[in-house]
Write a protein that binds this DNA or RNA. Structure first.
Lengths: 347, 347
DNA sequence: TTGTACGCGTTATCAA
DNA sequence: TTGATAACGCGTACAA
């Protein structure tokens, strides 16, 4: 690939002049500039960003790490980040950690070697992270997304998980539900999971209701009906559940329907995240919406401010309770058929 | 950030020796090596990849462009690519084009300036693309994904769209459907869309059935029931539709159910792509599965081979007809109530 | 307005 | 086994 020197030669000027024709065209005589651009065109010259980055000591690149792109909540946030970044002239290096702590470390190390100008990370557990310890010693600006660490000095953007789930719980209680459960994926060791459960527990207690133990599914985003079934029958069977993510909720609804149950007729199901797909389904998903687009956009803006040397104070973004068709009043029949087999539509 | 020279000084050796301690440790005396590593540690030295890239004239980076990450078919493919790339020591620069031709050009230009070692692209229309014209003149290895250009000399990986939809159509016909329609998103100008419709048309004709005009939705991934409704009633109302992507199919199913119709009771709905979520729903989505993970993995492998200077011949990957619950036999009642209002469950 | 010369941090070649 | 030196391609302070 042609370089500036060959362009300069062909144009009959020095390399410096050729360089200026690109970086500060106003400093070069129009006639000369034209000669340079003409030569560049003939040689199919394309500025070498790597050299420019080395020289300028800045890459205009942001390193992004998310747990997985198979979950739309991250893909949708990433989509927003990419648009925002490019609008500001930045590119994204994208990696996935699969919630693996050692991969998290390797990835961040690699991105630091790449001299990214900043990092946007979603880590497995912000309260027990080697990555954070490492970044603490570095000078590279970084920002967590979705995480909600206990330590106050870690820049983070996302919703208040505890308050969000508490609100969702109160919503169900207001509808008349008393026997509410919480369904989680297999990934327990996460700051968000702890806070979400805590929000549920708190809201239940505040209303004099008994919080149940977390119902844990073997996989992170796929519900297993067998794990839930024991909690559904009997005199204290659940009438509503809150899932820790939308994929879990959606697959749970599917499983319930396939088993002949009705949602929300037999069980109200609430999700968490607000992924786009939830709108489209029938019943549409009731969920706690994290403003994924705003989170992505704003993560980029805040990080860029940090890169400029400012010290913005990221605020929690507001969640929104999105009411859908998957949540309704508790079944009245249940109160009659208390200790016996609950009514079901067989398939 | 500390550089190699300062490490060398602290260790009391030359820069060359310090460099060797990292790149070819066996060439340096253990004692010396230890001194260097010790110094590097004390200075928190981290190799500068940018400098290395400039020197080595290779970035170990792959440029990736997809239309959007809001559609899981691309996010899931990207997830697979990222894993495969990192396993081979490559990083991904990820961009989204939003099916915009001018953005496509800018993005590719920017990635070429970044001196990526290769490109993996999904473009809007492989038969009318400035991007391909540009790449044709460049030396940068590239590979299309999902695209299916007419020109045979363009390296591509994906399924045979025509054959895939033809098979889906035959599947519906075999179930007894005669009045089958095809529902597309708003994005008509795409190589895939043309071939998929062509596959549908061909299969219909082969069985002596009349292909219908494409039913076009105002948005790409969200069905609008009003656009379909006219085709559902009357003596020749549709009994089955094939959607050009899964999101369209899923949202259509939702709309149909919300309007009191049953799927597949009143209308069989088939998707295209095979996104993970389709499994979880009830009814589960019948769809033509593109092997997204295999496509992503294999795109990286093939591109890396091209980067090594080989000339692999990418073969079409096999699609799979994934039978779900959203497709069944055509409603028998319809044959009785021919010219009158078809039976419906009111909500 | 243009040219000269240096440095960004690394690796590879050649000598010692 | 180690050291000196020259690139990689670009931007810019300084001089002309």
């Amino acid at each position: 690939m042609a370089d500036l020197l060959s362009v300069a030669k062909l144009a009959g000027v020095s390399r410096a002049t050729a360089a200026r024709a690109f970086s500060s065209p106003e400093l070069v005589r129009p006639e000369t500039r034209h000669k340079v651009l003409e030569a560049a065109h003939r040689l199919a010259f394309r500025p070498n960003n790597v050299a420019r980055q080395l020289r300028a000591q800045t890459t205009k690149m942001i390193g992004v790490m998310v747990p997985s792109l198979d979950n739309p909540v991250f893909a949708e946030q990433l989509q927003a980040m990419e648009v925002a970044a490019r609008a500001s002239g930045y590119s994204l290096i994208v990696t996935t950690s699969e919630y693996d702590a050692s991969r998290e470390s390797e990835i961040v190390e690699e991105m630091l070697r790449q001299r990214v100008d900043g990092l946007v990370l979603t880590i497995a557990d912000a309260d027990r992270s080697e990555v954070l310890a490492k970044l603490h010693r570095e000078v590279c600006p970084y920002l967590l997304v979705y995480n909600q660490p206990e330590a106050a000095d870690i820049p983070t953007i996302g919703v208040d998980n505890r308050a969000a789930v508490a609100e969702a719980t109160r919503h169900l209680i207001a509808l008349g539900h008393h026997r509410i459960g919480m369904v989680a994926g297999s990934l327990l060791q996460s700051d968000r999971a702890r806070l979400r459960y805590e929000g549920y527990r708190q809201a239940m207690c505040d209303h004099g209701l008994t919080p149940r133990p977390l119902i844990e599914m073997p996989r992170h985003t796929q519900a297993e009906l067998a794990c839930l079934e024991p909690e559904l029958s009997g005199h204290d069977g659940l009438t509503a559940v809150i899932c820790t993510n939308d994929l879990l909720a959606i697959s749970l609804i599917g499983e319930l329907q396939r088993s002949g149950r009705s949602v929300p007729g037999d069980l109200s199901v609430m999700g968490f995240d607000g992924i786009n797909l939830g709108h489209c389904l029938y019943p549409s998903l009731s969920t706690v919406e994290q403003p994924r687009v705003e989170i992505g956009r704003s993560a980029v803006q805040i990080l860029l401010a940090m890169i400029r040397g400012e010290t913005p104070q990221p605020l929690p973004l507001p969640h929104a309770l999105r009411e859908g068709e998957s949540v309704g009043a508790p079944p009245t029949s249940r109160q009659v058929l208390v200790t016996r087999n609950p009514q079901r539509n067989t398939p």
